[in-house]
Design a protein around this nucleic acid. Structure first.
Length: 220
DNA sequence: TTCAGGATGTACT
DNA sequence: GTACATCCTGAAC
């Protein structure tokens, strides 16, 4: 399958976020194993105008440095003391924009992902665990064994440990507000979250219930 | 099925 | 010191 080139990422961030849905994320492990999953949920972060973005108004620090890199670079950061989030840098070099990969569906080597994420085989997982396999940015990184050492990788390199290939365009795409960024004022309402509805479920990562709970929490 | 609360380390003020 | 682009567990329904 064809690997997405730099031109794919060197475009409007919201467009890239929408078009990444259905593409295949490929992770080649140090040991040689290959994990594949279909991207099912994304969010756009547009640094110059977006209070939710780490590099809002071109804020440049050691952490955000990667956001200024050339398009097609992986931006992986550590959050909440335990988790990592994977982003793909977009737009021309020097413009701090990225697409957060929020969720995916395993397509190859699911057994290995189960071991990485739960330290259990697929057969040992509960129904709840199988239903919530890679449907969150922290879960995705754990299942694909991604951490800060992967920050700055080139996603367009077919010989690298992490890249994205073409995939079938989803039949239907849902659009909504982003999650977990209540501090971002007007940017909270930008419709920059995209996801592919899964069998029987309209909600993507954390539905309305989770968003409502986060809001409640922030009001206390 | 839904909710509340805690875990946890880094970046930044 | 505070906030953070989260997730898991256990209890209540």
């Amino acid at each position: 399958m064809k690997v997405l080139g730099r031109d794919f990422y060197d475009r409007d961030t919201v467009t890239v976020a929408r078009e990444l849905l259905g593409k295949t994320l490929v992770r080649v492990l140090e040991g040689g194993g290959r994990l594949c999953c279909s991207i099912a949920e994304t969010e756009a972060y547009v640094g110059p105008v977006d209070k939710a973005c780490h590099a809002y108004q071109y804020r440049r620090t050691a952490r955000t440095e990667t956001l200024f890199a050339r398009p097609g670079t992986a931006y992986v950061y550590f959050i909440y003391g335990m988790y990592h989030c994977l982003n793909a840098v977009t737009e021309p070099e020097g413009t701090p924009c990225a697409v957060l990969i929020r969720g995916a569906v395993p397509t190859e080597n699911e057994e290995t992902m189960a071991l990485l994420r739960f330290r259990r085989t697929l057969g040992e997982l509960t129904a709840y665990q199988r239903r919530n396999f890679l449907n969150g940015p922290g879960k995705l990184c754990r299942g694909l064994d991604l951490n800060r050492t992967h920050n700055g990788l080139d996603l367009t390199d077919p010989n690298g440990p992490l890249y994205v290939t073409e995939g079938p365009a989803p039949e239907r795409i849902l659009v909504g507000e982003r999650i977990g960024i209540d501090y971002a004022e007007e940017a909270v309402h930008f419709p920059w979250r995209f996801w592919v509805p899964s069998e029987g479920a309209e909600a993507g990562t954390g539905g309305a219930g989770r968003a409502a709970r986060t809001r409640r929490k922030s009001q206390i």
